[in-house]
Design a protein around this nucleic acid. Sequence first.
RNA 1: GGCGGUGUAGCUCAGUUGGUUAGAGCGUGGGAUUCAUAAGCCUAAGGUCGGUGGUUCAAAUCCACCCGCCGCCA
Length: 677
Amino acid sequence: MTRKIVVTSALPYANGPIHIGHLVEYLQTDIWVRFQKLCGNSCLYFCADDTHGTPVMIRAKQEGITPEQLIERVRGEHLRDFTGFGIEFDNYYSTHSPENRQFSERIYQGAKDRGSIVKRGIEQAYCEEDRMWLPDRYIKGTCPKCQAPDQYGDSCDVCGAHYRPTELINPYSSLSGKTPVWKNSTHIFFRLSDYETQLRNLMDAGYVQPQVRNKMEEWFQAGLKDWDISRDGPYFGFAIPGETDKYFYVWLDAPIGYMASCKNYCDRNGLDFERVWNGGEYELYHFIGKDIMYFHALFWPATLLAAGYRTANKLFVHGFLTVNGQKMSKSKGTFITAETYLRHLDPEYLRYYYASKLAPGVDDLDLSFEDFVFKVNADLVGKFANLASRSVPMITKKLGGRVGRIDEAGRRLLAALQAAKDSIVADYESLNYSAAVRTIVALADECNQYVDNHKPWSTIDADPEGTRTVLTTVVNAVRYLTIYLKPILPGFAAKVETCLEVPPLTIADIATVFEDRPIRPFERLAERVDKDKVAVMVEESKEQSQPAASTPAVPEAAPVVPQLAEPLEPVCTIEDFSKVDLRIARIARAEAVEGADKLLKLELDLGALNKQVFAGIAKAYTPEQLVGRLVVCVANLQPRKMRFGVSDGMVLASGPGGKDVFLLAADSGAQPGQRVH
RNA sequence: GGCGGUGUAGCUCAGUUGGUUAGAGCGUGGGAUUCAUAAGCCUAAGGUCGGUGGUUCAAAUCCACCCGCCGCCA
């Protein structure tokens, strides 16, 4: 029976680029959607940019453009990045849309009619300089408990204390630097506790995974508190009807963006939104990260219930991405944007890698570059692509480009492939992609063993027809494997479909065989991933983040509290410091690097030894200026392989980069090779 | 700090309701091959299942405490 399904991914916020962390969710969702379509189900995938709120307003102001201009631009960038990764939305909309306003107002009215809207005054920080209310995260000051300076308005990073922003000592706006004043303002609250019973019923009905449910239980026991859904102007968002200068909090209208995107699609495609969203005919699933569980497991269903809308069948919660076992880091170059990735690597690699590690739980997923390279090369290329590559060309080159029929031995192999269907389908359906991939890889192993056992390369001259039978079996095996992998690897699948000259493969094709047909010349299905390319991508991610880090948020404003553009690192002991072996070096040679406009290739004379170092100082120094100079270098830095060669150290310099780079020099008398203490 | 999640071979992960000698892939060593993208096949080595204590005939699995990592505290 054909199912009808609506799927959403969380809406990315419109003030930053898509990065490989975001992609865990969009790829997880896209694979599921493609899987449903492969199974012949009708599946609609909706998303949008989340556009409202203070950060967007401030960012637009900094860039000297309107919020509307900013969100339009960012939406285009986001969609470009998603498309680059093969993520196919049926509609990618915006929360700054007429549909979203309409649904927000309707849901608010629904809650009001149910008596779930209450008002009360709260005290909040107001900046008279910028004439705006300050969210807690924009207020900084000295921690009332441990006196640490420059802590955020809600908690202290140094001692971990929690407090109210009013308790901060010497509070200041992180935007203007001015001291805020405390003013009273009436806010509008949604009484979440009115929906506790209904929410609990939802949990009982299997709305979330068990791990998430435990967390829910904790929240229920703590008691559901009223939710502040209003913000005072100026605020980039929807005005609240019947109020003066009050706007819906961004988190109220963000998930409503799912509905808006769906409505917009329905209107453009002749579908009845009420039927699709509310009719019960369609299943509805939301994919989200565990950081926004609270909003999607409590507020969102509660507001829908308030307005009489249906809630989702299930929430699929996933964990975060770590890179090489750690949080993504700009300084380590592991904060990799989708755009940067696509400039260096094939998106199918990441799709395969994530799929090979995704499970239904909320565990974090680790992207280890070493593992990434091995896995892509061993499985994707060595097992799948190579299986086709070692058999199909023999048919096109030596057997007239035609597959024949399959014999008994071939049928046994193919039967094993067919028999795996139910388990693979079940694994995809339950988001256990890693299990599906394990099964598929094991099948590919069997296929490769089959090829080795039948040695078509040694029989082809003596027994061409027998060999054709063997190779026909392999082609059929490749076809089945491709079907199983298609949700994960759409590009790979498209190449196989072209080679076989067949219409898009579906799961139903598992029941059929491919015999007595011509095939087209073989095109390589996937290239090996070069680990140097990964290294270059990481290197580039480091370079990109430097200017951003050194650009002050608001250049004109002079902060009252002194702050370094680059904050101090945590304390380092003398032992830590002694690990860094600094040496005086004389620049023996310097030359420009072809193909890199920031790099100079330096040969450093350290007395007894010479080192080759690539330094990102070409914008600031010409090679001629450098030869003969004494500099300080990190002599025991782990060598790094770059596109242009190995860099075996680093010369010390200050400055934000670009033209503003200032090399450290040594007073005369210092000798190359001397250690700096 | 409170709470939730998590910790299994060098790496990434499976381990069903507690039940023989704890598995897979990658990586590493050895072997036989050479059709194929230095891919594929055969084979070997590798683990006190975070720690301690407990329940049990039996614990990676259940319980308590501790340690590490991730997150939430609206």
